[in-house]
Write a protein that binds this DNA or RNA. Structure first.
Lengths: 110, 110
DNA sequence: TCGATGTGCAACTGATCGCTTGCACGTTAG
DNA sequence: CTAACGTGCAAGCGATCAGTTGCACATCGA
């Protein structure tokens, strides 16, 4: 148990891998699917896909749903909003600084 | 030869670390600063901070500027827009799917 | 000039990652 | 029942990572 693991860590980490982004996109636009089926179109093993999916689950971006002997992963993209929130906050603070600099520089409005 | 390493990889990877996010925030709101000075308030070595900063530079989020014997890193948050773009695209596609499902379900609610 | 300061480079270690392989277990269909 | 299928668990392995340490080099101030 670590110290209050910031959800942004696992979130951005999940998004940092192109395979995971691809999986998330597939789940989003094609609906829930199983690891075995998703692995068919990928150059890696089912187990590798499972681990990628678990990474998405850990980030809150997907949820496993057992149905008989198979497990379908459904996309739950809500946490993406948090990422967007952080990015916009950083950007906003940047714009703020820019505005402040402009003000300090006494630039006239174009 | 790999296939044009997607900039989103290094971008999200840089953002996945809380220390790097913290550094970026400091650079954004406090202006350019050196690795040595940034390292004072952190529980790690200057060299570690340098490597984090290089990660930000690789992602296009910072730029080193040499001034005499010191090197100041300036925040360049423009690439964040790309990240936001991807996230919104994924979200939009999700909403699209939701809308399609609603349409298929024959819901009369617009 | 000389010492203090800021940086860069390289080697090293322990941890984590990505991925595979092998096998056991529950589930479905004939 | 039995055989095929989908999944889960765990060990293993090479590669990469985060971080440190030690040292060389350039630059500034007195």
């Amino acid at each position: 148990m670590t110290v209050a693991d910031d959800p942004l860590n696992t979130l951005f980490d999940a998004l940092a891998d192109p395979t995971r982004r691809g999986l998330l996109q597939r789940l989003v636009q094609d609906g829930p699917d199983t690891a075995s089926h998703l692995a068919v179109d990928l150059p890696v093993t089912r187990q590798a896909v499972v681990k990628h999916l678990q990474s998405l689950v850990e980030a809150g971006l997907a949820t496993p749903e057992r149905n008989g002997r198979e497990v379908r992963y459904r996309a739950t993209p809500e946490p993406l909003a948090q990422a967007v929130g952080w990015l916009l906050a950083a950007g906003a603070r940047w714009d703020e600084r820019l505005a402040r600099l402009e003000r300090l520089a006494g630039s006239r409005r174009p």
